[in-house]
Simulated scan of single mutants.
Amino acid sequence: MHVGERFVSAPGKAILHGEHAVVHGKVALAVSLNLRTYLRLQGTASGQICIHLPNIDTFRAWDVAALQPLVSDRKAAGGRCGELDLELVERLRAFAGVAEGSTDSGNMAVLAFLYLYLSGFAGAQTLPSMSVRVWSELPTGAGLGSSAAYTVCLSAALLSARGTISSLLTQPQDTASWSEEELTLINKWAFQGEKIIHGNPSGVDNAVATWGGILRYHAGKITPLSRVPLLRILLTNTKVPRSTKLLVSGVKDKINKFPSIMVPVLESVDAVSRTCELTLREMATAGASAQQYDTLEELMDINQHHLSVMGVGHPALDTLCRLTLAHGLHSKLTGAGGGGCGITLLRPETAQRVAQEAVWELREAGFECWETSIGGPGVLLHCATSLPQGVLDVLTSH
């Protein structure tokens, strides 16, 4: 079985509002970042399956003949996606030499790739030889959905290579997406990859990478907002490491210790998320006004204070908020907090000079900072000429 070349990309994600409160049944808004992960899948005649992940210095190759026995007794997936096949995961752990409990990003990325490859092509007369190369604009381990963007790219590329979903770009298209039914299938397969990497993910990250835009998450239900504005932001990585598990546990302990204080805080965060959602809907349908941007800025300030009250702030995040406010810009942490990343809203009239000065000062403080946008498209199929030249160079290098 020979497969053709294809290029796929998917976005990262940030949490706009609702961090931590979402764990306790409140509304959260997750948004796509215009920082993307790119994948090139190329059929080969080498008799091997290869995965190249230059961001994390991971390069692995296996003979297809050695992989075939792992799926010889499995029925064809046929596009279906049920529960994670734990028996296959364990076989692949042994095959790839990945120890139980390993959290190494390279090992887990390899394990997810092998699982999606073998599951997608189970039942094929022969497993196809191919080379897959992935490069990302997203930093790993920063809470920006890098693993979900990776598994969504893998799922879309492998499903299209198998012929389960469409894969043709029609002229004069440079990029194309898939039907709602196909996106749902991509998302389901990507969620299996996320389970391998993270154990018990919420499904939010892979949903954002699949559909893009802004998603509402509430009590386990994920709902894409049908129309959303594209917003300019600064994204800042403080590079302060943190444990999401410990931060979530700390918020829970504080709620249990001071319920009369903390429960109203959670209710207020919920109200912030709902007010932001309503504002974004109005901006998308009637056009954005200065007053609506004022509202978004105030909501960011309020929510940042909520998160500090929850105990997930950090001096680095305080520095971020202080430096950007000196330029009239409003910021908040995004994700688990305790360091990690923050987002800063840029208004349409914010001068490029102001944004550049803020970026320079944040970098001088030791942070990584990018000007980007939120609310852009989800997973896309590309023709080679539509890719940024630098990205194409990395994906096609040897």
Rank of each mutant, 00 (worst) to 15 (best):
L158K: 04
E297Y: 03
A161P: 00
L246A: 15
E19A: 06
R60H: 10
E19H: 07
Q173A: 13
T103P: 00
P69E: 03
L278E: 15
V269R: 06
H314S: 14
A21W: 08
H2G: 04
D253C: 01
L67S: 09
S105Y: 03
P229G: 14
S397C: 14
V3G: 05
E357Y: 05
G220H: 05
C383G: 14
L325Q: 15
D57I: 03
I186E: 04
L39N: 05
G4R: 11
V248L: 04
L346Q: 03
L225V: 15
S397R: 14
A384C: 07
L185I: 06
N55T: 09
L299T: 09
A142R: 06
S202R: 09
T103S: 13
K245C: 04
A336C: 03
V204N: 05
N200K: 15
G375F: 01
G378M: 06
L323C: 07
Q352S: 15
A45N: 14
V8H: 08
P54N: 11
L185G: 05
L380K: 14
V64K: 07
I51V: 14
T324V: 09
A96Y: 00
C369T: 15
C369D: 09
G25E: 05
R322T: 13
T385F: 08
W135V: 15
I374G: 12
L92K: 02
V228M: 11
L168G: 10
Q173F: 05
S155V: 01
S160H: 02
S331R: 02
M283N: 11
V240E: 10
T319N: 13
I343Y: 10
V3R: 00
L29W: 11
H382W: 12
Y293C: 09
V31N: 01
A14K: 00
H20E: 10
